[in-house]
Amino acid sequence: SMKEVLTQKAHELFALCDRENKGFIGKRDMQRMIQELPLEPDQLEDVFDSLDVDGNGFLTLEEFTAGFGSFLGLDEAD
């Protein structure tokens, strides 16, 4: 299904950020991406904050997947 594909893809991208396989992405992981992505530190901070919907400072796979879905224009609802 579309949701399965989305989840799988999000998982792959999540793993790019979560190199230690912690199961979450912290701001430090995001800051490390600055060297590899054509984004400004401020922009990565923006991305992090907009994905971190509960504002706890950690991005879970669930939050990441939801953000990826909204980037693709998919609604969260089934």
Binding site: L13, C17, Q43, G67
Partner: peptide
Amino acid sequence: DPTKPGAGVTSEGVLANFFNSLLNKKAGSP
């Protein structure tokens, strides 16, 4: 200043940029 990052309205484009970059990186990796 609308060109300044962090203004809120930039988030969507920045998010798209971020995911696009990740996808490109993923595609480019061996």
